[in-house]
């Protein structure tokens, strides 16, 4: 084999470069443990079973959005069959107790930027503020 040394050195450099995100985060001491997502109060249930929600909530929200704004269909039922208003702020966020302790933790960890918050307010946080006497 010709130039084995050079090839192996090149390969080593390549591997190090490709692995940049991993060792960079490790060196930075980034917390790679999965986020702790706070659960809504017991006795409530999500729109779909939690497993499905984890994978499909983005699609579900886009569906809601089209139905509410464009078709004027505003109510649905949760997984337990209770009636539910199709609203990002007033259902998802209100029941999940605000963005910070649920949605944001997962999105931040995954580096997902959700632009919906530019317009949709954090209902849960306001409820908490009201309850806290503010």
């Amino acid at each position: 084999m010709y130039d084995a040394g050079k090839i192996l050195a090149g390969l080593a450099i390549f591997v190090v470069l490709v692995a940049t995100p991993f060792w960079w985060n490790a060196a930075r001491g980034a917390d790679t443990a999965p986020p702790r997502i706070e659960k809504p109060p017991a006795g409530t249930s999500c729109v779909l079973p939690p497993d499905q929600m984890r994978h499909e909530h983005m699609r579900l929200l886009i569906e809601w959005r089209e139905e509410v704004v464009r078709q004027d269909l505003r109510t649905t039922r949760d997984a337990a069959g209770r009636p539910l208003r199709k609203s990002l702020s007033e259902s998802c966020l209100a029941c999940h107790g605000g963005r910070e302790k649920s949605c944001d933790r997962c999105h931040d960890w995954l580096d997902v930027r959700v632009y919906c918050w530019d317009c949709h307010s954090d209902m849960g946080a306001r409820r908490a503020a009201v309850a806290g006497g503010r």
Binding site: E90, C119, H120, S121, M123, R126
Partner: peptide, 10 residues
């Protein structure tokens, strides 16, 4: 004063 029950715009 933002009313959280109606979204703002951008």
């Amino acid at each position: 004063e933002i009313d959280p029950s109606f979204p703002t715009r951008t």
